[in-house]
Amino acid sequence: MPSTAHITAIGTAVPDHDIHHAFIDWARARLPESRSAKIFDRMAGRAGIGHRWSVLPIGDDGGSPVDAGGFYARNLLPGTAERMQLYARFAPALSLAAIDALRAQVPLDGITHLVVASCTGFVAPGIDQIVAARLGLDPSVERLLVGFMGCYAAVAALRSARHIVRSDPDARVLVICVELSTLHLQDTPALEPLLAMLQFGDGAAAALVTAEPHGLALGQPFATTLPDSAELIRWDITDSGFAMHLSGEVPARIAAGLSDPTFAAAATGGRAPSDIDGWAVHAGGRSILDAVETSLALPADALAASRGVLADNGNMSSATLMFVLARLLAGPPIREGVALAFGPGLAAEGFGFRSAA
């Protein structure tokens, strides 16, 4: 029988520059109509987000990236090339900070495989090669880079690690998710994209996946797609960064999908919600968490870990789910868990998990 793969531990890291409230002030000033500004203020107040962190340096006057002297304090925002230069500098550094947090929990000797997920930048040699070199990993370490999948990329990364361990019980897989969403600020007077940008922050997470029976045992992965929804979540690569399109229809479409027993079963790996005592739902936004909670008739505290990550960090794209799993790892044992994330497609991907025996 194949070995059971386990997430032994997870380390997380965020930058030390909180940009959430500075962004709110900046975004409000771009809305030309008082009605739009009032809607934005109401949605910002209801977002359930207290902090979002950025790798962008503090401005010359000590302010945020949108203040005088900051990265975005110019009439024409930086081009994609300039943003990618910062990605190449900061993504490896934040990844290594998450690895340091992981190393404080478990030894990281004997790494055989490295899986890295990221959708907010491109660089070659890749983040996987840069991190491997800085860690001094053996050149024989097998590497996999999962790129541009969006918020459910953590599922793909952990799923790949599970496959590796099940085929090679001696494998020790280092999994990294790193996202620098704040590199992609767009100057727009439109309400919907400003509300989308309101959600996103920077963060990195690193996990060790092995056959050792510690932490969370990874179960069967699953995936499904909502029909006629491909345009609801989209990244467009432009000359001034990556433009996120996150439709306001997304929460309602997720709610409608989860109200369909067939889709709900596919989005939970066939598990009945009442049988699940551990929920790791990607914190894509308060309204998305509300849609999952209401549609599946979950207890009020079922998504506490996800809401806590959203409040403290915002949506960090692929890294977010790892932050949620880290909170569950630190909590009571889980008999039957489900990890679930939504992203471009509109797809739902996830896997079952439980606490190791």
Rank of each mutant, 00 (worst) to 15 (best):
D301C: 13
A347Q: 08
G215F: 06
D239M: 10
G79Y: 04
P251I: 11
K38P: 00
G284Q: 00
E179Y: 04
T120R: 01
P261A: 10
T112N: 01
V155Q: 09
D100Y: 01
L218W: 03
G219L: 01
L145N: 07
A104F: 09
S355V: 04
G136S: 10
L180P: 06
G201N: 00
T4C: 10
R103I: 07
L258A: 05
R253M: 03
M149L: 13
D128A: 15
P65T: 11
A44R: 03
A300N: 14
G352Y: 01
A196H: 06
V14P: 01
A47D: 13
D168T: 14
L258N: 13
A37M: 08
S259F: 08
A81G: 03
L180V: 15
T112S: 05
H17A: 03
T294E: 09
T238I: 07
S287W: 02
R46C: 11
V66C: 05
D228Q: 07
G69V: 09
Q220G: 13
P139Q: 00
H282K: 00
T224E: 10
A154E: 04
A243Q: 08
T8W: 01
G136P: 02
T294F: 07
R172V: 14
A319S: 15
Q186F: 12
A153R: 14
G11R: 03
L298M: 08
M43R: 08
T182D: 10
G79D: 14
D228K: 02
T225E: 04
T225H: 00
L198F: 05
I130D: 01
G314P: 14
A22K: 00
T182Q: 01
L158M: 11
G136D: 05
F351T: 10
L185W: 13
G150R: 05
A291G: 15
G63D: 07
A88F: 05
S118W: 07
G126M: 07
G308S: 08
L183Y: 13
A311G: 07
V309R: 03
I254W: 00
I233F: 04
A204I: 02
V165D: 12
P344H: 02
I58Q: 13
I254C: 03
G203R: 14
D290Q: 09
P78W: 00
A283T: 08
P65L: 09
A326Q: 08
P78A: 15
D67M: 05
T262I: 15
A117T: 14
T80L: 04
V106A: 01
A88M: 05
E33Q: 15
L194H: 00
G248D: 03
